[in-house]
Design a protein around this nucleic acid. Structure first.
Lengths: 120, 120
DNA sequence: CTGTATCCACCTTGATACTG
DNA sequence: CAGTATCAAGGTGGATACAG
C-alpha cells in the first residue's frame, strides 16, 4: 500500500477514495457527459450537441464505458428510425452532488477571471 | 452559444460552469494532486510518492499549471539542499468541497464493488 | 438516428540522463 | 532535493465513410 507522508489515516482514506472515484470518471469527456445528463435524459444526438466538441466516436465509446460502470442507462426507443435515450442510473445520480460542487466552483472561478480582467 | 436540448436556463448555466471548472482541472493528474494537498502542504518528493503512478516530469508540469491558475502556491525553503513546499492557495482550498464529494462517492463506489463481488 | 470501422496525426506520457 | 531535456512509444481522438 502506498505510504503517505504526514497524512492522518482519515486523510489517506479520503485520498484513496478520490482515486476510486477517478478510476471511473477519468477520461476527457466523462464528467461533461454526466453533467449533461444530470438534469434530463437525452438522446445520442442531444449529447453530441450538448457536450461541446465531442466526436461521435468518443461519445459512444465513453457512454459504453459509463454504462459498463452502471452510471448510465441506455434505452432503445421503438421509433422509426430508432432513437436511443441515455439517463443516469440511480447510482449515477449520486454523482449529482459532485457535479453540483464543480458547478459552484466553476461559477466562482469564472467570476474571478472576469474580476481579474477588469483590474488590468 | 451552444444550444441545449431540453434544459432550462439554470441547467445550461450549471453545465457551462462545469466546463469552466474542468478547463482548469482537466488533465490526468490535477485532481489527484489537489486531493493530496487538501489536508497538508507537501514537498515535491512527498507528492511524487503520494500521487500514485505520477512521474517527475508530469508532476512538475501539472504543478506549474496549477500554480499558474492560482490554485497552488510554491514555496522554496532555504534549507541545504533546498526543499520546495506546495500548498493550496485560499482559492484552491475552495475546491475542498469538490474533493470531499468525490471522496464520498468514491467510498460508496468501492463498497458497491465489494458488495457485487460478494454476490458472485 | 445511432452507431461502427479504419486510417492517421498528434499529444501525452514514461524512461533516462542530466543540472543546480 | 527539485527539477529539466531529450527521445521514443503508445494512446487519444478527429475525419471520413459506411451500416443497421
Amino acid at each position: 500500500m502506498t505510504d503517505f507522508s504526514h497524512d492522518t489515516p482519515e486523510c489517506k482514506k479520503a485520498i484513496l477514495a478520490v482515486h476510486d472515484a477517478m478510476d471511473v470518471l477519468s477520461g476527457k469527456w466523462k464528467i461533461y457527459i454526466i453533467a449533461a445528463l444530470c438534469f434530463n435524459s437525452k438522446r445520442y444526438s442531444d449529447l453530441l450537441r450538448d457536450v461541446r466538441g465531442i466526436s461521435g466516436k468518443m461519445l459512444s465509446r465513453e457512454l459504453k464505458d459509463l454504462e459498463m460502470h452502471r452510471l448510465v442507462k441506455r434505452t432503445v426507443m421503438d421509433t422509426q428510425p430508432i432513437t436511443v435515450s441515455y439517463e443516469l442510473t440511480p447510482y449515477g445520480q449520486k454523482l449529482k452532488e459532485v457535479i453540483n460542487q464543480l458547478a459552484v466552483w466553476g461559477m466562482e472561478h469564472r467570476n474571478m477571471i472576469i474580476e481579474e480582467m477588469r483590474n488590468n
